[in-house]
Design a protein around this nucleic acid. Sequence first.
DNA 1: TATGAATGAGAGTTCATTCAT
DNA 2: TATGAATGAACTCTCATTCAT
Lengths: 200, 200, 200, 200
Amino acid sequence: MDMEFVITSKRKDANKNAVKILEAAKIVFAQKGHETTIEEVAVEAKVGVGTIYRRFNNKHQLANAVAYEVIAEIYEEQVRILKSNLTTIEKVKHVFACYAKITIKYGEIHQMIVDLLVSEKGEEDLKESFLLGLKKLYAEVITNGQKENIFREGDPRLYEIILQNMINPQMVKQIAEIMPLEETPSFLADVALNGLLLKK
Amino acid sequence: MDMEFVITSKRKDANKNAVKILEAAKIVFAQKGHETTIEEVAVEAKVGVGTIYRRFNNKHQLANAVAYEVIAEIYEEQVRILKSNLTTIEKVKHVFACYAKITIKYGEIHQMIVDLLVSEKGEEDLKESFLLGLKKLYAEVITNGQKENIFREGDPRLYEIILQNMINPQMVKQIAEIMPLEETPSFLADVALNGLLLKK
Amino acid sequence: MDMEFVITSKRKDANKNAVKILEAAKIVFAQKGHETTIEEVAVEAKVGVGTIYRRFNNKHQLANAVAYEVIAEIYEEQVRILKSNLTTIEKVKHVFACYAKITIKYGEIHQMIVDLLVSEKGEEDLKESFLLGLKKLYAEVITNGQKENIFREGDPRLYEIILQNMINPQMVKQIAEIMPLEETPSFLADVALNGLLLKK
Amino acid sequence: MDMEFVITSKRKDANKNAVKILEAAKIVFAQKGHETTIEEVAVEAKVGVGTIYRRFNNKHQLANAVAYEVIAEIYEEQVRILKSNLTTIEKVKHVFACYAKITIKYGEIHQMIVDLLVSEKGEEDLKESFLLGLKKLYAEVITNGQKENIFREGDPRLYEIILQNMINPQMVKQIAEIMPLEETPSFLADVALNGLLLKK
DNA sequence: TATGAATGAGAGTTCATTCAT
DNA sequence: TATGAATGAACTCTCATTCAT
């Protein structure tokens, strides 16, 4: 698929324009989300719109590439965390902190990513490439946690979903009005792990 | 405010079309969210576009009215649940079930509501009319729970936010692929209350 | 022609609505000119839009009727002045004062009248009914003036045109910023009669 | 200001279309005035509507640009006349001839210009750039005339207004039905200077 | 007869996408 | 290959006019 090519060539830094465009797109999409226009990206990237269309077949694909980029940016980190020898609980906390960063740093893009992952249509390769990778790691952490008698029983996929969704852009925005942003992830991790009820 | 008027005139059944339009809008917005066009609503309502603009000053206002309608639809139920003499835990479960219904029945509108409530700009009356009402009730449930030594300590507003966001459109969609939809709310309530960790 | 009927029935005061509508239309058109909407007139007249369409075939005709009304309002006065036994010069001054009143009292309608009278298309009966009447009188005054050796030689129709156009909405507006409104007509009459050059 | 830019980029011949559009707009606006639609201009210019919007932010700005163009077209000439060493009277006659050309050549645009100059709101830079320039020159001519004992006493601004308004679209149209167009300006200048009364 | 809700053609404007230079 | 001008479909919104009540 084209995107594969794009990303590949980008990775190789074979093409400086693709990088410029993606960086610019990240900035603009972070502020305006799906309402971003191609022209705005072109201006930010100091490129012609035509150049963007040379790299990305259409706006949709550019948006995906942006999402991909952002996911990629935390992917490495998440992998490191999940493969580390931190305790399971610590891992969860770090993963949360990691997600919170996206919301803070990339504003509207977080929602774009969520939309993308939920949308039934297309983008299968995007979902698969990253999500499968991450899902496996999450699953591992969760099943490990279950084996260690730390996590409750049940289909690990359900807990994956919850972990991924406990940090959502809206929630972070709302909580940030009450509590310092840097405390938010660990607060949410705590709630996710321990629930709202008082343990006796 | 205009919206107040719209609803009022509808309630009085002063004109059938306002109802027809709102019902049609609910159907179309549920499928397409903010990408809905006025013409699509007009077709669905079997009404001219002008008729829609007679009732709603602009698309924005129509979208709000739809959100308002949907919120109104669960508002009564939520109030009943929260004011009932169920146990605090049962209340939480019922409230979750109630939210899950929106996601199932109204698809994209759930996200629209979320966007609306998070957006800083305007819509203050919408937020206030319903949200303040509900927030007070949530706060009451939570502080009651804290007094009963059932809920953990901490700023009740944080727990409100978590309760409201634990049911989000994306999560429900994803979970519904794994677990029967009717079990989803109570599962989520359980996780929200008890957390992912095993209680010992 | 329909308008003839309308006016006739109005004159007879056979129909109160037509009067109400025309009065309302005068008020609204005076402020907004051709940008006036039928609905605005309906509101001002406290009538339904349908009622307006019962009396006037279309917006165009209503606008004409308004212009007609306003012309009619000064027609009588003009006739009185021109048929009086004032000196020719005094007549000119009074006629100017009379036109100035329209501009002051009827704002945008003055321009509407001008547009109407200039437009090649249609409205012939409007033009003829009044203009012919007035033109004859103007012509008389002018030719009289020429016989009395007061006015210069030349086609009297030319001087008619100049007299009619020396008072135009724009000019009055501009002059009114410099000179008290009540002095404007006689100033303009003076200029029209004596010109800008100094008589020696 | 944007308009400045538009004109500038046109002057530099940076793009041919701005010229094409402006020329087309002149033709259509000359016939239909403010009732012109953007699509009509697009068709006349053999250009897509979007192209027009690339050059002009909105219809209003296009209309202004057209007016600006037309004024600019006579501005140079007026300046030349007024700064020449013709007699004051000759200057007035030439200026009139110059204005008459606009009416003949640009039909409805003359009225648009008048509307523009009279309208209180905005367009200040348009007014100022040209009008201030011209006004100064007019004032000079008039005060010179007064010093030479040719013009009557009084606030020069009043005579400016009269000079500018003695040639108005309506009047020219009407007179042109009676007298050859080429004689109209000098006839009007004569009337403006000498008035209707016979000098003895 | 009076009403005002409904209509829908038509206007202004935007923007993803194409393509000549 | 890069550009950005050009395109036109699509969208929102207005308002003269009609017509069921």
